[in-house]
Write a protein that binds this DNA or RNA. Sequence first.
RNA 1: GGCGCGUUCGUCUAGCGGCCUAGGACGCUGCCCUCUCAAGGCAGAGAUCAGGGGUUCAAAUCCCCUACGCGCCA
Length: 486
Amino acid sequence: MNPTEEIRTRFAPSPTGYLHIGGARTTLYNWLFARHYGGTFVLRIEDTDEVRSTVDSVTAILDSISWLGLDWDEGPLDLEREQGPYGSYFQMKRLPSYQEQIRKLLAEGKAYPCYCTKEETAAVRQETQAKGQPMPEDPCRRLSDAKRREHETAGRLPAVRFIMPDEGETVVEDLIRGQVHFESRLQPDLVIQKTTGGPTYNFACVCDDHAMRISHVIRGDEHLSNTPAQIRIYEALGWQPPKFAHLSMILGPDGTKLSKRHGATSTLEYRDQGFLPEALRNYLALLGWSTSDSKQLFTPEELFAAFDLPGCQKSPATFDPVKLNWMNGEYMRALAPADIVKRAEPFLKNAGLLPVPAGPPLIDVVALEREKFKLLPDVPGRVDFFYRETALTDKARKVLSAPEAKGVLSGLAELLGGFAPFMEKPLEEAIRGFCSAKTLKPGQVFHPLRAAVSGRTDGPTLFSMLELLGRETVVARLRKTAASLG
RNA sequence: GGCGCGUUCGUCUAGCGGCCUAGGACGCUGCCCUCUCAAGGCAGAGAUCAGGGGUUCAAAUCCCCUACGCGCCA
């Protein structure tokens, strides 16, 4: 890489819905690439589809990218404000610039108005295909003035087509796939302006990437086939094309393109399910990219230090929620208890545990359970019994159905009734003493004790749990459960 | 239909002609640790590298064909 060349990447979503997880990955790769080379990352909103574009989508996309912790150097800050020297970063506000370039191409004879309807074009194609003939020249390329007037008076609105070369080939030097050759003869003249007067995606994109000085276009696989036409447009306009890199797509578990029927595909859904943005980022980075040592866990610094295009995979990758879960657990475990509490706030609130009810300090409880959290909602889920009585799980019920359970619980209630200090070590000593005095195996005592006090069979280490719960709660729950066991 | 891209354990991947009896990670199985559950440690099962032809002393790695999947233009 030429160090004097400024690296500028961009993500250019259409605001026609939420940010898809595939889009999130594309954003991430562009961001990582820019950060790796000390370049600039640009966000541009491609909102020329007036029917499907919505402001809510713009907001959702900005929120998604922000939540992932990816910052953009240029682009919209919100619906009104923008930053960066090459604005506007909303295509709808750049319409005149596309028209100007189209006029230029038209004037230079590099493009022409085409009056054919979609149906007519399709019919011609079908016919020549059936005969196995090569692509015919578009009939509108050399339209007589008379014929043109005829169309005009008939009220037909022209699209504008860009003239592709008749022979030779266009080579895309793809940074991930290598050289990809396209025979010019087989490339139809690309529509660059729709009959409505608006630019097509492929054209606006070229104009903006040039205007915004984009050096590397890193985008989805689905754009590879359009790239030769785009390169020809750059040339026709006298511009230097950027470098291209096409990413393979993300598949669902059944091998088809990841979509809603595979579950969550919106980035914000992952936030709402309690994933950590740094975990999602790490997971997404590895979905189609890897280092030669197959390293799995990266700090943010390691990630953008290691990321580069040659490590990107050519073949599509299947999204694996199970591995994402594991990775999220890894990140959760690395968090300090205070951080866990902070991150879990919305979920604690939602579960009625914030403000924290009377009981042990939340941070102590969280510290006790920290290595068990996989997702943020696990925090209230695992911690709630410290603050309120929860229904017995089936397993707990089973443990308590042991014949000696009732006696054990009453005995313990008596033992602990006036017990002090109510702390881990003395409690363990006393309870182990209780076991030998009653000639019971520790398990026969520990298990029902845990079940009665917490309502479940899994949980924190027993004696620390008792200490945090406090004598009153422990004894009350023991008595109540003992009484319930007929 | 044409063109283009892709194809290594179930999944993510390493591999860029000999180091591969194909390595790592998730998941799975077993063992250890242990008051439960996790976490952790150890061990294991799991890929004839899509199939078939070449090239080469030697191919997962290079070339060709086929199959399948996907994308773009219609």
